[in-house]
Design a binder for these strands. Structure first.
Lengths: 199, 199
DNA sequence: AGGATAGTGGACCGGACGGTCCAGACATCG
DNA sequence: CGATGTCTGGACCGTCCGGTCCACTATCCT
């Protein structure tokens, strides 16, 4: 089976259309008929491009969304070499999730596809890359003498956990307060930003 | 409709049986037939005690599980008045979630019932109580002069976010490393425990 | 005892939804 | 201009599952 340009375009339309739908207000569980309607395709096409069916399709969408998560934090995430840069990154993260609101595309994706093999790998891989970028930033700060001697990997892991939790609370409460609190607490606790928790 | 002792027992059996099932290895989505089989009941009984059907039942189970989350942290959570107490609490939290493993009962409950009215209120209420207990602990430490002048509510919120995220990462990776990292980072960053991140 | 009310069992229904299948349109190339 | 393979549409199927309904049984009260 050779995929032509037209075919690739259709496949892409399916993935992106599904992603857009999942970012919408009332997604709940997506059905193949939903996807068919949104993307202007047919069952035939869906199974043509995703022989594994719904599961394979949603996994593809999850990978697509995971990529966006990291992209949305650039260029800040890639150059965490000063206190100011950490501050801008913090703002970018909060802004991204505030804009996203209660609804987390990757979250509902995982809710639907969570148990299947390969599902948690997608998010694990995302978090690993994210954590590594943070770790590099912490190391850079340490080498520049801007912060003390910390376990960069563990601190990066703490940031990852904090962000995940902040976003999860956001999904329930609709407020970014927790996300901001944990980011500020970690930044401040380790000299990556000025005092906001301590008075 | 008056509920007799026998009725109450049956209702309780349904809730607890469902909770046990959800704590098991391969829950995925529960069906009413699953619940029927596990709890040795019939559809008639389920709808007798939960006229709202599956949704109402799962919400009841969620409330039941939420209660357990707080209970499992006692007596530590109620008396966070010394560095040692914070340390013991940290251990209790990590132990609880390590024992729970990849599987989070409340998590899969929310995955199934997430969109329905009242669902996020259950977890919001849980987190609010949790955060309040932490806040009281921080205030106690501050008043005892054991920590500096911090915004107790924001720091408590940071803990909540961190724990939630740590648990979520645990669900994907099976490791408590992130949970421990964020707890240690926050404890250490604000003088609630000795250095583990800084060296 | 006997009627009323609570509790129980399970057959049954209807809709939703993932997946199959095949016929026809379209493109590409000898 | 056929032939071969890709792309597209949608009818159709089987299953799963939440929910309804009703007959039957235990329990309680007077």
């Amino acid at each position: 089976m050779v995929i032509t340009a037209k075919g690739r375009a259709t496949r892409q339309r399916i993935v992106e259309g599904t992603a857009v739908y999942l970012r919408g207000d009332e997604p709940g569980d997506v059905t193949l008929d939903d996807i068919r309607a949104i993307t202007g395709t047919s069952k035939g096409q869906i199974f043509h491009y995703f022989p594994g069916g719904k599961e394979e399709l949603l996994l593809a969408v999850a990978r697509y969304e995971a990529e966006l998560v990291l992209q949305d934090q650039q260029p800040h995430l890639g150059a965490l070499t000063s206190r100011a840069a950490w501050g801008r990154w913090r703002e970018a993260v909060v802004a991204r999730y505030r804009a996203q609101g209660r609804h987390c595309p990757l979250g509902s994706l995982m809710a639907q596809v969570g148990g299947t093999p390969g599902a948690s790998e997608v998010v694990t891989a995302l978090l690993a890359r994210w954590q590594e970028d943070l770790r590099l930033g912490i190391v850079a700060m340490r080498e520049a003498g801007l912060v003390g001697d910390v376990d960069a990997d563990r601190l990066a892991a703490a940031f990852i956990a904090g962000i995940q939790g902040g976003v999860q609370v956001l999904r329930s409460t609709g407020s970014t307060a927790h996300l901001e609190a944990v980011l500020d607490a970690l930044l401040e606790g380790f000299g990556l930003a000025g005092p906001k928790i301590r008075s």
